[in-house]
Each structure stands twice: as structure tokens, then as C-alpha cells.
């Protein structure tokens, strides 16, 4: 496979995952704003930060308003990580690697793009927002479904999956980065109304409310939420789960190519050092420091993969 193709697949799936995650963040923000329990402008600031687009927003806007924040994250072409920009970038990468994709994956991607363009051609009103965000996520799911249902399990698939899970781990780590303080043990373990809203924000942002309730019970608090998002291997958006998937796919590549990449060694280290512990060890390390470390390591793995598999000249 061409290095360029591996690069295109990696980014196609990263952007697809990003579109989905950003749409989930917008939905979360909207939901919290409606409950009127959180101080809503602050909430939008932290959501912009979580999506990694706050600096861009501030450069383009004088004030922070809900509508402007939503529009920036949803459809502003000046924001390279807006939902619309991400889907366009995913499709652009898909065009580049068209020969590596099945017909069904290409068509799902292309039609996701066409639909997103249609839905996001003008500002989305509050009433239409849930429907539009739902459609975006369904379209992304369709691409993922076509990918799982029709693509060969070869190196093409491995790079697609590595892109997906690196982006997802990064997203979960950023959610924790922005909200870590509400999960600290010093915060009340009983939880005020405001705490409860904050915890719910975190769980909504990873589509994890139902799963969390089922596994940890309705009364569970911040310690369990941290456990759930960081170490729980059953949770498909937890750091441990994503890292495990990245390792699996790097191992498949090592098998197919007869050569282990440095990134694989790094991922094994990270799992060993950070993700096979219990949550108390994480708190002992310092939750904030732990999250910063994870963000740095994810970026490092990304770079090792780019270099090791010759994405660029």
C-alpha cells in the first residue's frame, strides 16, 4: 500500500470520528443549556475547549453566544474541525484513497457529505438542531457499518481503525481535560445539583449515560465516572478500550508486514504503565497530570505512526 494511501485512510476515519464527536458535544451543550442548571455561557466555553476550537472561535468572534458557538462548531468553513469541515475533509481523503475503499464505503461517505452539505447550507434553527445532529451521526454510522461489513481485514482496514481510535481516545481525553476538576475526590461525593449536571454532561458527551447507569448503578459518583471513561474496557470510548484497539491494529500490521513498528512498543508501554491500574492509582498520580500525559502520548503515537509507515516523504 502507498504511504499516501495509509495517510488518507487514517485521516478519513479520524475526520469521520471527529464529525461524530463534535456533533455529540453540540448536542450535550444544547441539552445542558436547556436544563438551565449550568451557567450556560461558561458551559459553551468549555465545550468549545473540549472540541479544541476555542482559540479559533475567539479569533473570529468578539463575544461568546450560544448561537455563534453552535454555528462555529457545526458549519463554519473557517473552522477546520467544524462538523461540515470534518465531513468534507473525510470525503476529500476518501476521494484520495478511493481505490482502497469498497464501492459501498465510498458511496456512504459521499452521500454523508452530500446530505451534510444540504442540511448545513444555512444556519440551523434550534428546533431543527436535534434532527440535524441525529442525521449526521446516523450518516457517520452508515460509513462505519459499510466499512465493517464490506472491507477486507487487511492493512487498509488497520489504518482506518487506527485513525478512528486515535481520534476517539483524543476526544475522550479532551473531555476529561476540560472537566477533570468535577471528578476530583475533593469534590463532594454526594453531589449537588450542579455536580450532577456536570457529571451528566461528561456522560452525554460519550453517549455513555445508559451504559454507566447499568454497570455502576444510579448512585455512582465521580470516581466511577473516571473509572468508566479511563479504564473500563467494556466502554467503547474509554482510553483503555481505544488504546487496546490501536494496539490490536498495530499488531495486525506487524503480522502482515513482518515488522513491529516503534508505535506498537509505545502503545504497549502506555497500557502497562497507565491503563492496567485501578482508578486510585490514577488519582494518586494526579488526575490532571494523568490526562495531560495521555494527550501528549496520543500525539506522540500519531507521529510515530506517520513516520513509521511513511505517510509523507
Amino acid at each position: 500500500m502507498l504511504g499516501k494511501t495509509a495517510n488518507g485512510l487514517f485521516w478519513m476515519y479520524r475526520y469521520l470520528e471527529r464529525a461524530e464527536n463534535t456533533s455529540r458535544l453540540i448536542e450535550t451543550g444544547q441539552r445542558i443549556a436547556l436544563t438551565r442548571l449550568g451557567a450556560s455561557d461558561d458551559e459553551w466555553r468549555s465545550i468549545l475547549q473540549t472540541a479544541g476550537v476555542a482559540a479559533g472561535y475567539d479569533a473570529a468572534h468578539e463575544t461568546l453566544t450560544k448561537d455563534a458557538a453552535i454555528d462555529w462548531m457545526l458549519r463554519d468553513p473557517a473552522n477546520p474541525s467544524s462538523v461540515l469541515s470534518s465531513i468534507a475533509a473525510a470525503r476529500q481523503n476518501a476521494r484520495m484513497v478511493r481505490t482502497a475503499l469498497t464501492h459501498e464505503v465510498w458511496e456512504a461517505t459521499n452521500s454523508a457529505y452530500m446530505r451534510a452539505q444540504e442540511l448545513l447550507s444555512r444556519k440551523v434553527g434550534e428546533r431543527d438542531l436535534p434532527g440535524v445532529l441525529g442525521t449526521i451521526r446516523q450518516r457517520a454510522a452508515l460509513v462505519r457499518g459499510a466499512t465493517q461489513g464490506t472491507m477486507l481485514r487487511n492493512d487498509i482496514y488497520d489504518f482506518a481503525r487506527i485513525g478512528t481510535f486515535l481520534e476517539r481516545a483524543d476526544n475522550t481525553a479532551r473531555i476529561l481535560d476540560v472537566k477533570y476538576y468535577v471528578l476530583l475526590p475533593s469534590a463532594s461525593s454526594v453531589g449537588s445539583a450542579v455536580d450532577n449536571v456536570q457529571w451528566e454532561t461528561i456522560l452525554r458527551a460519550v453517549s455513555g449515560r445508559g451504559g454507566f447507569r447499568m454497570e455502576y448503578g444510579a448512585g455512582a459518583g465521580p470516581r466511577e465516572i473516571a473509572q468508566f471513561l479511563i479504564l473500563d474496557r467494556r466502554m467503547p470510548r474509554s482510553l483503555a478500550f481505544c488504546m487496546g484497539k490501536i494496539r490490536d491494529n498495530l499488531e495486525y500490521l506487524a503480522g502482515a508486514y513482518g515488522e513491529r513498528s516503534p508505535a506498537l512498543g509505545r502503545v504497549e508501554d502506555i497500557e502497562q504503565t497507565f491503563l492496567r491500574r485501578d482508578i486510585d492509582a490514577v488519582f494518586d498520580f494526579g488526575l490532571y497530570e494523568f490526562i495531560q500525559k495521555q494527550l501528549t502520548l496520543l500525539a506522540e503515537i500519531g507521529r510515530q505512526i506517520e513516520v513509521g509507515y511513511r505517510f509523507y516523504e
Partner: peptide, 17 residues
């Protein structure tokens, strides 16, 4: 930019060299 001349042949940059 995927191609270059290597050992007298035109070669493409793959994930394995």
C-alpha cells in the same frame, strides 16, 4: 510525490518502503 528514482528504477513509496 509518491515516486522517486531508487537504484535506477522508478519506485513508489509504500508503507513498507
Amino acid at each position: 510525490h509518491d515516486l522517486r528514482v531508487v537504484d535506477g528504477r522508478v519506485a513508489m513509496r509504500t508503507t513498507q518502503g
